[in-house]
Structures are given as structure tokens and as C-alpha cells.
Amino acid sequence: MKTTLDELLAFSTVVASGSISAAAQQLGQTASGISRALSRLEEKLDVTLLQRTTRRLELTEEGNAFLTQARRILASVEEAEEQMRVRRQTPAGRLRVNAAAPFVLHAVVPLIKGFRERYPNIELELHSSDQIIDLIEQRTDVAIRIGPLRDSTLHARSLGSSCLRVLASPAYLAAHGVPDGVQALHQHGLLGFTQPETLNQWPLRHEHGDSFSILPSLHASSGETLRQLALEGAGIVCLADFMTHLDRGRGDLVQILAEHTVEVRQPIHAVYYRNTALTSRITCFLDYLSSELSTMA
């Protein structure tokens, strides 16, 4: 890359400030130094970026197009430098985290010991809610949300995703048999959600499509309740991997109809308001959570 960051900065500052002298003052350089930087940049790009007159500077069409990219590059560098500054700090203070109860129990709680050992000065406060909450009203710094995000003014960061699988306990399968196809599920006890109804659309390929609408014989509002019912042999369930990876590892729940299962991954996001005072705490927590979640996706 021939262009330097100093040249990009000189160019964008001249445009923002309206003159070479104003840019020089803002950057703590000489006007001649800024002028030379602009000339070098135009020479390297082999285009004219600014039309210079005795009274003003005016962007050319090429200059306007290049300015957008220059600003984007400078913003990315600034963000990277800020992240490094955050990492050098010692994060401290209270961090309030909200997530659905199953996610807190199966994804967050197992990580708390390691997180606190690494960041002993962060005071975590965990709250569980299966409903979408108002962060300000609930005095929450970070909320973890599973599934597609709604339009929001919140800042969002992807933490990964988690597969959905159709599962049953060995005891249930021994008593009722293993379904030999998707339609055979009609003869089995199915465990489903009270709401939203979309959670009762299982990712199973059949003759009418890639989504199978179930009619549960037993409903529950909580995924954790459904998990416990499945472990007790009450029926067949469809749950995300982050809830069941240990159950499957131990053989307490086994996947069925794998050959009919369509890969559907539920996105996992952290949402929060931009708050400089909280930046280091939020960044540390989400970095740690993201790295650990990959092992249970």
C-alpha cells in the first residue's frame, strides 16, 4: 500500500476544516507540510482530489469518492487503537447482564469462575428474563438475545450461533421407539413452547418443506422446563445446542431424525447502549463470552 495514514489524515482534515492552514493548526503541523502531504497523495493516486483556488478548496468527483473510503479507514484505525487502550486498562466496577434463564444457566454460569479470576475487579450482576426488556428501565448494561434481532437503536455484537436439534432421552426412546421419519412424530409425545409459536416450527425436512409444525402434547414457557421434561422421558423436544451440549455429551439426550434435520443456527447477540464509562467492562465480558461460546455451539 503506497498511501500512508498521515496522508489520509491530512486530506480528511483539510476537507473537514475547509483550508490547509486550519488543518495544519488542528494537526499541529505546518501548512507547507500539509500541502506536501496532499501533493504526495494525489501523485500516488494519479488523480486530483482538491481543486485549489486563492479563496477556497473544492473536492473533485474523485476526491469525494476517495474521501468516503479515507474516513472509513481512519475510523477503523481509531477503533482498533481504542480497543488496545481498553485492553491495557484494568476494568473495574459493576456490570449488569440480562439473558434468558436457560442461557444464563448453561452458557454464562459455567464461565463465571474463569471470568472472575481474569477480571477480579468487575462486579457481575446477573439477571434472568425470558422477555425482551428495556435496558434503561431495567438498569441493564448488556442483554444477550437469542434469535433474529428486531430493529433497534441499541449497539449489537454477534457472539456466534447455536444449532437446533430434535432430541429425546434414551428412556423415552426405549419405551416408545425411535421415530423412523418426520411424520412418525405424530405418534409421539412432543414438548413445545407456549409462545412464540415460531419455536414450535422444527427444522425437519419432509415432503411439504423444510420446517415441521408440531402440535405439542405438553407446553411450557421456558426452554429449561422443556429440557428437564425431556430428561425425565416426558417426550421429544427441539432445543439449541448451548442448552444441551453437556446432556448430549453424557448421553442423557440423543439426537433423532438427524438425516432429516435442516441446519438452522439461532444467532446470539449482545445488545447495549454505547457508554464510554462501561466500554472496558463490556468489551472484556463479551470477548470472554464469545471465545468460550464457540466450544458449546
Rank of each mutant, 00 (worst) to 15 (best):
T225I: 11
F11I: 04
I133L: 12
T194V: 15
H260W: 07
H206R: 05
L154W: 11
A174I: 06
L173N: 06
I256T: 02
P170A: 10
T198L: 11
G192K: 04
L204G: 01
L164S: 05
L126P: 05
A37G: 01
L95K: 00
S213E: 09
K113V: 07
H155P: 01
T13Q: 02
S294R: 15
F193V: 06
A174Y: 12
L257Q: 01
V15L: 02
L149A: 14
E207V: 07
L95E: 00
F285Y: 01
L149K: 06
R116G: 03
D210G: 09
L204P: 00
Q51I: 15
E81Q: 14
T276V: 09
T244K: 06
P216T: 06
A37V: 00
L9V: 06
A297P: 01
T48F: 06
R52D: 09
E292S: 13
T13K: 00
D287F: 00
E82P: 06
L257M: 08
S17A: 14
W202I: 05
G33W: 02
S21Y: 06
E78W: 02
V182Y: 00
H188V: 05
H186R: 14
S152V: 09
P196Y: 13
E78V: 08
Y272D: 15
A70P: 00
S158K: 04
L164H: 08
I268Q: 01
E117H: 08
L173A: 10
L74N: 04
R94V: 14
T279S: 12
A100V: 06
P110Y: 09
P196G: 12
L173R: 04
S21V: 08
L229V: 05
R265N: 15
A230M: 05
A70I: 03
Q255E: 15
R145A: 11
V104C: 11
L204V: 07
Q51E: 14
N98K: 07
N200I: 05
L59Y: 10
A92S: 14
H186L: 12
D287M: 03
L167P: 01
N64S: 15
L185G: 00
L257T: 03
T194N: 07
E224A: 12
Q138K: 12
L49E: 07
L185W: 00
T194C: 08
N200P: 07
S158M: 04
G93A: 05
G93W: 02
A22H: 10
Q266G: 05
A175C: 08
I133T: 15
P196A: 10
G189H: 13
L111G: 03
F193Y: 15
R274C: 09
F285C: 02
I132Y: 13
R96E: 09
R56A: 15
L5F: 13
I144W: 00
V237N: 01
P267T: 11
V15K: 00
G235C: 04
L231H: 02
T295W: 13
Q69L: 15
S32G: 12
T4W: 03
A240S: 14
G251C: 07
Y273K: 12
V271H: 07
V254T: 09
L154S: 09
E42D: 11
A220K: 04
L38M: 13
G33V: 08
E79I: 10
S32I: 12
I132S: 13
E224R: 05
R94G: 02
A80P: 04
L27A: 06
L41P: 00
I256M: 01
P110H: 09
E224S: 08
A23I: 01
A31S: 14
G114H: 11
A240G: 11
L135T: 09
R87H: 10
A80Q: 14
C238I: 10
